[in-house]
Design a protein around this nucleic acid. Structure first.
Length: 563
RNA sequence: CGCGGGGUAGAGCAGUCCGGUAGCUUGCCAGGCUCAUAACCUGGAGGUCGUGAGGUUCAAAUCCCACCCCCGCAACCA
């Protein structure tokens, strides 16, 4: 049986994750994992923080704590947020773990052995007072083109021209402000991607028409331009030391050890229960594993070119990505989310405003699959109010109220079926089939449209059969209708579970069922008879509440939504 | 001429690969229903599919060409 390995791009440890991160990789990976688990598939979902790099090192200095503690602190903070969103990671690890180090070294040595690592000398800005090399973007100065005085050494934010740190007028360190800097030659290791160009081209070609356009075209673009050798070491202290003579003060570049982190994190997970778990079952000589990766478009080149090249270059049978689900960006009110500009909604704030499931539903229904999309409170409110509140929430409420008023707190008996039920079964079968196949194909927007149609089908059925009238004239008929409608709620709970796990549990709770979700593999005709006459049902408050225009105004002001 | 993605009713999107009288959701208008959270159900109006009285074709949103506009990327922000 196929085993499903699912990974979400690893968020940078000291970043403040926002809705864009959630929709671009974290949430869809969870939805997909929940869906497959519910179908009875074997699933391993891993994620974690990407710990290494200059910004962690600098962040720790600013807070006056050591880098390892700093990373742990922010790792734990992020883990708590993701738990708040009910992301069901089997393990949320760290790329700075001992386990990852072991695997990074193993792969590095294989690459060395296979002649894919070469030394090069490059020139790098060195800050004498700080006793450290500075990445290009940490050198700031006046732009020679536009005169902007805070231009970064790689690109001027003001005029967007690409720069070299030596172009800058009055260059200085953005960390300390020191102008006591110079250019020093430094030796680094480079991964020889050009040697693997042909092999990667052949491999990527097999993904044509299978991966989403954004993933395939991005990979093709890099190949078309011709792969260049790529530095995999840096002049930093925080990171895995480079095991080679003459590289004592250098570490591996984060982009080398971060994707390998998927493997390292799997080993962290396995080490928690060594008797029953084995990381190699998922990663090495494991042809039965299907690996699905989720990420934003900025990550695609690294997951479609660099990382596969790293694994292939080792000449060991590592598990490669089978399906790369790339997402475009979710913007905020026409602009980009920006921590520094305090614009946009970050995950801690999001959870304070609304339950996780509101966000989960909206984000999946509006996932930026084909183009960048943008978030506004108006759009958010219209979807929540309509789909969740009016269509689904109200359906549940009206069915429950009618049942309680006419039959008490139990499922009424099912009598003879009419063509109304037959028609409903047919519609449900069709929609469940398309919902399932969209989820299989990771086409989330389309899946969500099918789910919504299922909710509408329930209201349609009620409108057509008018149980409130039957209750007065033909009580048995009313019982049959409400029995069917209650079973529809049971169906909705199961189908919604990957998207809205908490709400789905509440729905099962109302039906007095344990939180044990199933996928409807059988036809509607039999699945919609799961709840039997006499089964207890529980009163419940409405599951959702509306977001009023006043509330929308407040939120717009609070989060500085401009458009 | 750097590269890629996008431009389809007020808004958000599908359709474009494999040409065949333009579709979905929301919003708006009208009607139905009155079990329910002023909700639900039905119908209607609204688009020269970025531009070119461009090319191919019996037929173009879809294929070809030119141009305009928006967004992203450009290998050390990971």
């Amino acid at each position: 049986m196929t085993k499903h390995l699912i990974t979400s791009a690893l968020p940078y440890v000291n970043g403040l994750p926002h809705l864009g991160h959630l929709v671009g990789c974290l949430l869809p990976s969870d939805v997909y994992a929940r869906y497959l688990r519910q179908k009875g598939e074997q699933v391993l979902l891993v994620c974690g923080t990407d710990d290494h790099g200059t910004s962690s090192e600098v962040g720790a200095i600013k807070e006056g704590i050591n880098v390892r503690d700093y990373c742990k602190k922010y790792h734990d903070r992020q883990a708590a947020l993701y738990e708040g969103f009910n992301l069901s990671f089997d393990y949320f690890g760290q790329t700075s773990s001992e386990q990852n180090k072991e695997i990074v070294y193993r792969i590095f040595h294989d690459l060395e052995k296979n002649g894919l690592i070469e030394e090069r000398t490059t020139n790098q800005v060195y800050s004498i007072d700080e006793d450290r090399y500075l990445p290009d973007s940490y050198v700031i100065g006046t732009c020679p083109h536009c005169g902007y005085d805070k231009a970064k050494g790689d690109q001027c934010e003001n005029c967007t021209k690409l720069l070299d740190p030596t172009d800058l007028i009055n260059p200085r360190s953005s960390i300390s402000g020191s102008t006591n800097i110079e250019i020093r030659p430094t030796k680094h290791l480079f991964l020889q991607l050009p040697k693997m160009q042909k092999e990667l081209e052949n491999w990527i070609e097999t993904k044509r028409g299978i991966w989403p356009d954004i993933a395939y075209t991005t990979a093709k673009k890099w190949l078309k331009e011709g792969l260049k050798e790529r530095g995999i070491t840096r002049d930093l202290k925080w990171g895995f030391a480079v095991p080679r003579n003459g590289f004592e003060n250098k570490v591996f570049y984060v982009w080398f050890d971060a994707p390998i982190g998927y493997i390292g994190i799997t080993k962290q997970w396995a080490d928690m229960d060594k008797d029953n778990r084995n990381w190699e079952d998922w990663w090495l000589n494991a042809p039965d594993v299907r690996h699905t990766e989720f990420m934003g478009k900025d990550n695609i080149p690294f997951h479609s070119i660099t990382f596969p090249a790293t694994l292939r270059g080792s000449r060991e049978a590592w598990t490669e990505v089978s399906f790369l689900k790339g997402f475009n960006y979710l913007n905020f009110a026409g602009g980009k989310f920006s921590k520094s500009a305090q614009r946009g909604i970050f995950l801690d704030a999001a959870l304070e405003e609304f339950p996780a499931d509101y966000w989960r539903y909206w984000l999946m229904a509006n996932a930026p699959e084909s183009d960048d999309s943008s978030f506004s409170f108006e759009l958010f409110a219209s979807v929540i109010n309509k789909d969740l509140n009016d269509v689904l929430g109200n359906f549940i409420n009206r069915v429950l109220k009618m049942t309680f008023n006419n039959f008490g707190e139990q499922v009424p008996p099912m009598g003879d079926l009419t063509e109304d039920e037959t028609a409903l079964y047919e519609t449900v079968d069709e929609l469940v089939a398309s919902y399932t196949s969209y989820l299989d194909g990771l086409e989330f927007r389309k899946a969500m449209a099918a789910l919504r149609e299922l909710f509408v089908a329930g209201n349609n059925y009620i409108a057509k059969t008018e149980p409130w009238k039957a209750a007065k004239t033909d009580k048995a008929r009313a019982g049959t209708i409400l029995n069917t409608a209650l079973n529809l709620i049971y169906l909705y709970a199961n189908l919604s579970a990957p998207i809205m796990p908490q709400t789905a549990e509440k729905m099962l709770d109302v039906l007095n069922k344990p939180a044990n979700f199933v996928w409807p593999n059988e036809k509607a005709e039999s699945f919609l008879k799961t709840l039997k006459a006499g089964d207890k049902i529980n009163p419940s408050d409405p599951l959702f509440s509306k977001i009023t225009p006043e509330r929308q105004e407040e939120l717009r002001a609070k989060y500085k939504e401009t458009e």
